[in-house]
């Protein structure tokens, strides 16, 4: 089996390398991908959308439908993880004995099935795989997370003028929450941004995007034709495109951030939302 796989892969790779003779050279300014629609984007993007970052302009305006459904793919992936993994009731897969840690002393209690759980809030429920966290890691991440989140917001908001946009900023925001869950523990992260909140944000992001498109329909233009929003924003049609792109990017950022966090919650704790990694 492995030899057959190796042979077919080598054959396929050889044919592909043979085929590269017909491909344009690396860095060729006249290559087919650079010669049909791309010069129009580069030369007209600022005049048509007032967005200097051409990638953002193409992403949210010229190819708005593509991005809308990519966002929908991210949303449905998060939904798939939730429906496949989430366990609501305590079943035989969850450990029968429960472990509680006394926070001030670090003593761990083991409660057998049917035993009474400690009521004091000095105890926290933990997993059998629980390991003590490092003080340095905890403190450093607590200091650094606000700056990561600020940078994520900057990347979303400044995506018109510098590298950035909804996808990148959303991933940065989501990773800051995942870092919080990794460095503290999963339950504290869920306390900050719960499952319901992430689900609602994820849907709200897609809704903002699709809603911006539908608003254009209501204003009498095509779906996702932001120029129609100029009476709402009180600016001319070109500026309205720029602002419409910003609205859409915020929706994308919201959806991506909460999808990342939601997928992490479900994967890290195998759907039980207990201790996690």
């Amino acid at each position: 089996m492995k030899i057959v796989a190796l042979a077919s892969v080598l054959l396929c790779g050889g044919i592909l390398i043979f085929g590269t003779a017909g491909f344009p050279d690396f860095g060729d300014p006249l290559s087919p991908p650079a010669s049909h629609v791309s010069p129009h984007y580069i030369e007209e993007a600022v005049a048509e959308t007032s967005v200097p970052n051409i990638v953002t302009a193409v992403l949210a305006d010229y190819r708005g439908f593509d991005t809308l459904f990519e966002t929908a793919v991210v949303f449905s992936a998060a939904m798939a993880c939730f429906f496949l993994l989430r366990v609501f009731r305590e079943d035989e897969r969850s450990p029968s004995e429960k472990l509680y840690r006394h926070l001030p002393t670090g003593i761990i209690l083991r409660i057998d099935p049917g035993g009474k759980a400690p009521q004091s809030n000095e105890f926290e429920p933990i997993d059998p795989t629980w390991v003590p966290h490092d003080m340095i890691v905890k403190t450093t991440t607590r200091l650094i997370i606000p700056f990561i989140q600020l940078f994520g917001l900057y990347v979303i908001a400044h995506g018109h003028h510098s590298p950035g946009g909804g996808f990148q900023g959303g991933v940065i925001l989501g990773s800051s929450l995942i870092l919080y869950a990794l460095s503290q523990n999963l339950r504290m992260a869920i306390g900050r941004m719960g499952e319901t909140v992430s689900a609602v944000f994820c849907a709200a992001g897609v809704f903002i995007y699709a809603g911006a498109g539908a608003l254009c329909l209501l204003m009498g233009a095509n779906f996702l034709d932001y120029a129609a929003l100029s009476p709402l924003f009180g600016v001319d049609a070109i500026q309205a495109r720029s602002l419409g792109i910003l609205v859409v990017e915020i929706g994308v950022g919201l959806a991506v951030m909460s999808a990342m966090v939601w997928i992490y919650y479900n994967l890290a704790s195998v759907g039980r939302h207990q201790e996690g990694l």
Binding site: A34, V37, S38, Y41, V58, L59, A78, F167, G170
Partner: peptide
């Protein structure tokens, strides 16, 4: 050329999401 960057920008995030589904 900005167009491949746009396509891959979305593809990277979608690949992370589909990786989540695959691991699930």
């Amino acid at each position: 050329n900005p167009l491949p960057h746009v396509l891959m920008l979305t593809a990277i995030v979608v690949s992370v999401a589909t990786l989540g589904v695959a691991l699930t």
